[in-house]
Amino acid sequence: MKPYAIFLIGSAGSGKSTIGKRLATEYNFCYLDKDMVCNIFTGMLLEAKGYSPHERDGNPFYSEVVMDAEYTTLLHIANDNLQLGRSVVLDAPFLGYFSKRDYIRQLTAKYGWEHVTPFVLEVHVDFDVLKQRMAARGLQRDQWKIDHWQTFVEGIQSKRCLWEEIEIISFDNSPEEFELSRLQKLLPFSG
């Protein structure tokens, strides 16, 4: 069976990590969270340039220099697992790449993913629920989003994944409790 590359996308606080970890556990997939893979070196790079280690939103140094390094690192690790035949859950927003229609085609060519089945699992939640979840988790990296809520929401609403040649599965994670069985009905491998 071909390994799957699951691009798990959605806003911070949408429940991507909970869903990604459950999928990885249930199906024995590799789980890669961009923040866990990159946060230490990203924080150090930002501090070296005089920024807070959490200052990403609205930071041109992050968006123009650091972000690509984060995603390249994440994708290299994913590719190693996919080449071994192991499916991978990529837990990262990928927002900065949504407008690149040929993004998946480029990754397939770059990494030789002809034997890989990629798909997008887009997690979304009601914005009131999202704000409550972000406030409850109390992460410093969410503070800008909460302080600039309307701008943050408008940013989410304006960015749609435009990738071609890939199935996009949408999942509403607004309910208080995550139900794996509800998600499994949508997945191509759980048939």
Rank of each mutant, 00 (worst) to 15 (best):
D102V: 07
L121M: 05
Q132D: 13
N173A: 02
D33M: 00
G13L: 06
P118I: 14
E26T: 04
W144H: 14
T25I: 02
L187W: 12
L130R: 07
E114V: 09
L183G: 08
K49T: 01
Q184L: 04
C30A: 08
S52E: 09
G58Q: 12
D33N: 15
Q132E: 14
V153F: 03
K131R: 15
R182D: 12
S174A: 13
Y62T: 13
G85E: 02
L130I: 05
Y111G: 05
I9T: 11
L23A: 01
I156W: 07
E26Y: 01
E122R: 14
I169C: 08
V153W: 05
I19P: 10
Y51F: 15
E167C: 05
H115Y: 15
R137K: 07
H54S: 08
C30T: 06
L23K: 00
A5V: 06
E164I: 14
E177A: 13
K49H: 04
G10R: 07
K100G: 00
G96R: 04
L23W: 00
Y111Q: 01
F94W: 15
Q83A: 08
L139Q: 13
N81C: 09
Y51Q: 12
G85Q: 02
F189S: 04
D35N: 06
L130T: 11
R101I: 06
S170N: 13
H124N: 15
Q150M: 01
K110Y: 09
G50F: 15
K110H: 10
P53N: 11
D35E: 10
A78P: 07
N39D: 07
S99M: 09
A12Q: 03
F152H: 15
V129H: 02
Y71G: 13
Q184D: 02
V153N: 03
I146S: 05
V66E: 04
F98N: 02
V66S: 09
S181K: 11
T73V: 05
S87H: 06
W144L: 11
V89P: 02
S190H: 08
K16C: 08
Q132P: 01
F98V: 04
I146R: 03
L121C: 03
E177T: 13
P175S: 12
Y103C: 04
E70A: 07
L90K: 05
C30W: 00
R56S: 05
D91H: 10
H115P: 11
D102M: 10
A135V: 14
A135F: 06
D91V: 05
E179G: 03
K100L: 02
F94Y: 15
G112W: 06
S17V: 00
D91T: 05
A69Y: 10
V88D: 08
I6C: 01
L130V: 11
W144M: 05
E154C: 04
G96M: 06
K145R: 15
R182K: 13
W149S: 03
E70P: 12
